[in-house]
Simulated scan of single mutants.
Amino acid sequence: MIDIPNLPDMGGIDVANGVVGAVLGMLFAVLFQQPLQNAWYRMRTRSTSAVRSLRRQEESGPVWRSFSMGPLHTSALIVEGDGESSIPADAVYIQVLDEEVELPADMVGWRDEIEAQSARLRAEGRTPLWNGPRYAVESFDVSRTALDEQPEVHLRLRPTDYYTFLAAQQLDRRLPDGTTPRTRYLDPDNPLRAPAFLHCSFAVNVAVVTADDMLVVSQRSDRVRMAPGVWNSSVNEGMSRHIDSSGRSAPDLHAVARRGMREELSIEPHEYTLELLAFVLDIDKRHWSAHFYARLKDLTQDGLQARMSRGVADRWEHQTIDYVPFRPAAVARYMLRADRIHRWAPLAPALFHLALVHVYSRTPVERAEAQAIRRL
């Protein structure tokens, strides 16, 4: 009989090898899997970018672009101001010219139609169109101071009235030669150039934030003639030749904003701080605006609601007021809401963006807006 030496238990060796292999596999995954995945992702991204770059050609684009935020597109062109720095009141120079704005001969009849309509409404005992005295923008220029390169704004105005404004708002109505005021007088490649009779609107828009950090957002009444039912700035006040100019003096933009705060929200000047952030042009309707940021000192959301319950001079201009937490992410989500994104007054989203930038600075605001866009 041949003696066979004892052999090791092969089943035990297999188990041990399996355990060691599993441990080594886990160690490899922990140490190398994520770096390998990151490297693979970077390689794919670079190769994709390289392929795209091969397809690209030289392109050019306009310097002037209206404000947009992802799918939210507006006709608001920010002409001066970035939100981070305010524009001092003494840096704004306003000159009022004597000669009134005149419509072209083939548009005078449009104004006559509006005047006749108002007379008819009055005769029927209905509310006529009040022909308030207004200002038209003859020119808008910006220069920089020599030492610190701070902006100096030069605004030249001409007298006009509301009927002329309404006539000039018919930008796409056909003239006798088949053209329209938009095609005849406006150059899409030079949006700042336009005759004064097409710039018969200058207003202030104010972003109001309560003492407990709530942004006031108003919805225009269905009773107003221009843009009824849209969501708008906290305060929107048109510049009036009769109210905002004493004697022959030029209007003061901060005073117009304070008047709007008082008439639309019943808030007095000592109850808030007020800063001018930018000048903006609605290139579709040709409306100019001075954009302001107002911070209430003591009035909270509840306090403001209680104040307004006791009476507001221009209550009929708003039908709803929303209160939105004044934080970049919250305001961005609100502006992009499905029931808001297509119902904004053109100048409001740019105002709220500039107010956020003024308080939080540009980088965190744009980061929050980008995140809100990605989550749509």
Rank of each mutant, 00 (worst) to 15 (best):
L265F: 02
D212K: 13
A16L: 15
W316F: 14
G83F: 07
P8F: 09
V137P: 00
A105D: 10
S118Q: 03
Q37G: 01
L299I: 10
D314W: 07
A39H: 12
L72G: 01
W64V: 05
L215I: 03
I283A: 06
R44G: 02
D298E: 14
R52C: 05
H342A: 10
S266N: 02
S309W: 05
L97R: 11
G81D: 09
R367L: 04
T210N: 09
S49F: 10
Q33S: 05
I341L: 14
P128F: 09
V137Q: 01
K297L: 03
V204C: 11
R248D: 10
S49N: 11
R52T: 06
M239E: 05
R310C: 03
D187P: 10
F292K: 02
V19D: 08
Q33D: 07
V19R: 13
G21A: 14
A350M: 02
V280P: 00
E264V: 00
E100K: 15
E268Q: 12
Q305H: 09
T160H: 11
A332V: 02
L7N: 06
D252Y: 11
I373V: 12
S66M: 08
R262Y: 14
G81H: 10
D112G: 07
G70Q: 05
W110V: 04
S246P: 00
G125C: 04
Q34L: 09
T48P: 01
A330P: 00
D213F: 11
V209A: 07
G109Y: 12
H318R: 15
P71G: 07
I373E: 03
V20Q: 13
Y293L: 15
W288N: 00
A50L: 12
T210A: 10
W130S: 14
R184P: 00
G229Q: 11
G132N: 05
V224Q: 05
A345R: 06
G229A: 10
S201D: 14
E369N: 04
G260W: 13
V19N: 06
R174V: 14
E58P: 03
R111I: 09
R333L: 04
L175Y: 09
S221N: 06
Q37A: 07
N6L: 12
E58W: 09
D189T: 14
L354M: 04
N232Y: 06
A91Q: 14
N131W: 08
E58G: 07
E264Q: 04
V51D: 06
R262Q: 13
D148A: 06
D284L: 09
P88G: 13
I94W: 02
A76C: 10
R223G: 01
C200S: 15
R173C: 09
L277N: 03
Y185F: 15
D148H: 11
T273L: 12
F165H: 15
Q169Y: 07
R362P: 03
A372T: 01
A196V: 08
M226L: 11
V153D: 01
